[in-house]
Simulated assay, not measured.
Amino acid sequence: MSSHQQETKAIHVGQEPEQWSHREVVPPISLATTYKQPRPGEAISYEYGRSGNPTRCCLEKCLASLENAEHGFCFSSGLASITTLTYLLKSGDHIISGDDIYGGTNRLFQKCAARMGLTTTFVDARDVKNIAKALQPNTRLIWMETPTNPTMKLADIKAIADYVKTLDNVILAVDNTFMSPYFQKPLDLGADIVLHSISKYINGHSDVIMGVIMTRREDLAERIRFFQNALGAVPSPFDCFLVNRGVKTLAVRMECHQRNGLEIAKYLESHPKVAKVYHPGLPSHPQHELHKKQCSGSSGMISFEIKGGKKEASDFVANLEIFTLAESLGGIESLIEIPSLMTHTSVPLEQRKQLGISDSLVRVSVGIESIQDLIADMDQAFAKI
C-alpha cells in the first residue's frame, strides 16, 4: 500500500485479515512466549516472543509505512529505543546532539551513554555550521529533535542530512515525536533513522509506554533487529494491540490537535500576562518559513513564558481545571507542565539557563477538547495570578 495516503495506511497496513486463521479484522493479541517447531532449528515463522511476536509485527509494519520506511522496530519505551540506538556505536565514539532536547534523552547521553565510553557534544542545531564545528574524527551519530523540547526550535533536516552525506560512517537520527508521522517525515528529508516515543501522538491515549525506530537502510535494520532481540527491551503484545488501535485515528486526532493548538497559541500571543509564545505555526516564530517547508502542519505542542516568575507560572498551572498538570504529551487530553520543575529537572541548571528553560516557561500539550472550554479555562486561571 505504498501509494496510499497515511490515513489509509494507519488502518490497513499490517492489519490484513488474511494472515489470521479466522480472518479477524482486528489483529488478535498473541500472548504466546514460544512457538512449536516442526523439526529442531526449523521455526516456521516465530521461535520466541522476545525475538518476534505476531501482534508486534503488525504494528511495526504499520508504523514503518507511516514514515515511508522499510523497517520498524518497537521497544518498551522511547528511551529504550534510544538506548538500543547507542549500541550501534562503540566505546570511544562521539555523538553530536541538539542542545534543547527531552530531559530524559539528555540524561541518557550524559549519565548512561558516558558510562559506555561515548561522549556527546550539545550544539544549537538551528545552524548546520554548528554541527560542522562540533564534528570530530570519531563522530558516529548526529541526534536531532525538531521541534525541540521544550523551546520549539527547528533543525533543517534536509540541510543537516545533505551535510551528513558528505561524511563517512555517520548516522543521522531524528526524534519526530513532537510532530508525528502525520506532519513531518524525516526519512523523506534524508535522515537515516527516525524515532518516536509512541507513548505520545502515535498511540494518543496516554495508556501505553513504547518507542519505535524506523529506517530504510538494510544495513542499519539488520543491526537494530539484532540488538532489539539481544537487549530484549521489547513491548508486550497487549501494549502493541493498544497502539494498533490508537494509531488508526492518528490523522483525525492530529488535525484536531493542530486546530486547537493554533487557536491556543494565538490566544496566548495576545494575552497581556504572557511574555512570549513558542509555536512554529505562528508567523512570529523565527523559523516559521522552515516549518512550512519541512512540515505539513503543526501539532498541539506550545511553550510560553508567563510574565513574572516561578510563583506566577506555578499558580497559573495549579488553577487550571480542564488542563491536567502532568508530564508527557500527545494524548487526547490537554496537559500542562513547567519543564524546569518537571520534565527537565535532570538537565543541569546552567544548561537550562543557556537554553532559556526558565521557571516561568510553561509547556502545553493541547488536546482535542472543545476549544471554547480550553480558552475559558485559561481565562479563569490567568485571572487568579
Rank of each mutant, 00 (worst) to 15 (best):
K133H: 13
G41P: 01
R140A: 02
A69G: 07
E42A: 13
I95P: 04
Q37L: 12
E47N: 13
L172M: 09
G98Q: 13
A64R: 05
T105Q: 15
G92I: 09
S91M: 01
L141R: 09
R107K: 14
E60H: 03
Q136T: 15
I142N: 06
K133F: 13
V128T: 15
S97V: 03
S91L: 04
S97F: 01
T139M: 02
A113Y: 07
D175R: 05
N176M: 01
A132M: 13
H71N: 12
P150R: 03
K90F: 04
K90Y: 06
S51F: 13
P40L: 07
C112E: 15
E67I: 00
K90P: 00
Y46A: 03
C62H: 07
L59H: 07
N169I: 02
E42T: 11
K158F: 00
I96K: 01
E67A: 12
I82G: 00
D124M: 04
H94G: 02
G41L: 05
L118S: 08
H71D: 08
K153P: 00
D93E: 09
K133R: 14
V174P: 08
T119H: 08
Y35W: 13
D127Y: 04
G41I: 00
I160D: 08
A134E: 08
C74E: 09
L172K: 09
D156F: 02
L59I: 05
K61P: 00
A125S: 15
P137E: 01
Y46R: 11
L63H: 03
S91A: 14
N176H: 04
A43R: 13
G52L: 03
A43I: 02
C62R: 15
M152H: 08
L118N: 06
T166W: 02
I160K: 09
Y102M: 11
S97W: 08
Y102K: 12
